[in-house]
Amino acid sequence: MAAAAAAGAGPEMVRGQVFDVGPRYTNLSYIGEGAYGMVCSAYDNVNKVRVAIKKISPFEHQTYCQRTLREIKILLRFRHENIIGINDIIRAPTIEQMKDVYIVQDLMETDLYKLLKTQHLSNDHICYFLYQILRGLKYIHSANVLHRDLKPSNLLLNTTCDLKICDFGLARVADPDHDHTGFLTEYVATRWYRAPEIMLNSKGYTKSIDIWSVGCILAEMLSNRPIFPGKHYLDQLNHILGILGSPSQEDLNCIINLKARNYLLSLPHKNKVPWNRLFPNADSKALDLLDKMLTFNPHKRIEVEQALAHPYLEQYYDPSDEPIAEAPFKFDMELDDLPKEKLKELIFEETARFQPGYRS
């Protein structure tokens, strides 16, 4: 834990890192770190609560700039109880001085990944967590956004079992017609939660990839272990087919990539493993919904509104309290091709509203 900075004593240090967030945020305490930044909790002297502050230093890398800009653009436009918001952003007053960006968010005690390492969940908890994931996802999908990296560590939890989806750095506007060349190379989302079509096709992607990830998360809540822990690309596919069985001819016809289709045709026939054999203690309604989410063919996979209306979630289902976005989200430009200098300018502009004396 960093010592509390005395008023006016300059930035606090946390594990050798400068955290320049005073005077409003003090009493910093280390939480963890990701690929390009550290997260601390801090005391907000204005709202009198502890908050989470993520320090991001992305400006050396085009990919990190892209992810940072995506996350900020999306989260500043989203407003939903099951999606983490941005409360404040701290950065230098000029673009030349801006080396880091500090993002202030609600402090959540833990995440689903940490929880599943230590606790076996009751059916009631599984049901409530799944409902909140789908409630947040309904809003995301209504904005025409794909999260693309749903996994237990991106689901934040607090002691009252509130759940918030975080990390929109890989999110995209849904565009089933656009052929994202190089899709697989830039697709760094965790393999275990990846839909089979991501490994088999490169053309376009749809909201059904997020539903697949939610199915993987439900299976993990039922058993405290990942359902498809593939060691590499082909191993991942083999794990999936080992449980779902061989795809039907109709399902194979959806695979545009001939090499991928021929690979699947070359494999020995596998039978589907019954879900109640894998999860003998699970609620039968939970397994019915799991089956509809972990469907090989993305066109037959359940959609988020149908999933919310499934009998497993009937005690929570309330369409009048499951809000959607006001308007579909649009990125003005494809960020993939922009140089990091341009992305830095866009991050600077996007964060201006939090600067003292800002006038829109």
Rank of each mutant, 00 (worst) to 15 (best):
A3I: 00
A4P: 04
A6Y: 05
A9L: 07
M13Q: 07
Q17Y: 01
V21E: 15
G22I: 01
P23W: 00
L28M: 14
G34I: 07
Y43Q: 14
D44Y: 14
N45W: 12
I56W: 15
I56T: 13
P58L: 15
E60C: 06
T63M: 13
C65V: 14
C65K: 09
Q66F: 05
Q66S: 13
R67P: 04
E71A: 15
K73F: 09
I74F: 15
R77G: 08
R77T: 03
F78I: 15
R79P: 05
E81D: 14
N82Y: 15
I83W: 00
I84Q: 09
I86N: 13
I86P: 05
I89R: 04
I90H: 04
R91C: 12
A92V: 13
T94Y: 12
T94D: 10
E96I: 02
Y102F: 15
I103R: 12
V104S: 01
V104H: 02
L112K: 12
Y113H: 04
K114P: 04
L115C: 01
T118K: 13
T118I: 12
T118N: 09
S122M: 07
N123D: 02
D124M: 02
C127Q: 15
F129M: 03
L130E: 02
Q132S: 13
R135Q: 06
I140M: 08
N144V: 07
H147M: 02
H147S: 01
D149W: 08
P152Q: 08
P152Y: 02
N154S: 12
L155D: 05
L155K: 08
L156T: 01
N158Q: 09
T159I: 12
T160D: 02
C161P: 03
C161K: 01
C161M: 05
V173S: 08
D175A: 15
P176E: 07
D177M: 04
H178Q: 13
H178S: 05
D179A: 14
D179N: 13
H180I: 12
G182E: 13
V188E: 06
A189L: 10
A189F: 04
R191A: 05
R191V: 01
Y193L: 11
Y193K: 10
R194H: 08
R194D: 06
A195M: 03
A195K: 04
P196A: 08
L200G: 01
N201T: 10
S202H: 06
S202K: 09
K203S: 10
T206S: 15
S208W: 03
W212D: 06
C216P: 02
L218F: 06
E220M: 04
E220A: 11
E220R: 07
S223R: 12
R225L: 15
I227L: 12
G230A: 03
K231F: 06
K231G: 05
Y233V: 02
L234H: 11
L234C: 06
D235R: 04
L237H: 07
L237W: 02
L237C: 10
L241T: 03
G242H: 11
I243E: 08
G245P: 08
S246C: 14
E250D: 05
I256C: 09
I256M: 04
N257S: 13
L258S: 03
A260R: 04
A260S: 15
R261H: 08
Y263G: 03
L264H: 03
L265V: 07
S266E: 02
H269V: 08
K270W: 05
N271A: 02
K272W: 12
P280E: 08
P280A: 00
A282I: 02
K285G: 11
K285W: 06
L290K: 04
L290E: 07
D291K: 06
M293L: 14
H299R: 09
R301D: 03
E303Y: 05
Q306R: 11
Q306H: 15
A307Y: 03
L308A: 02
A309N: 01
A309M: 03
H310D: 02
H310G: 04
P311S: 12
Q315E: 11
Q315A: 05
Y317W: 00
D318Y: 13
S320E: 04
S320R: 01
D321R: 04
P323L: 10
I324D: 06
A325I: 03
A325W: 03
A327C: 08
A327T: 11
M333D: 12
M333E: 02
M333K: 15
L335M: 13
D336R: 02
D337G: 00
P339R: 11
K340V: 03
K340S: 04
E341W: 03
K344N: 14
E349M: 01
E350G: 00
F354S: 01
F354H: 11
Y358S: 12
Y358D: 09
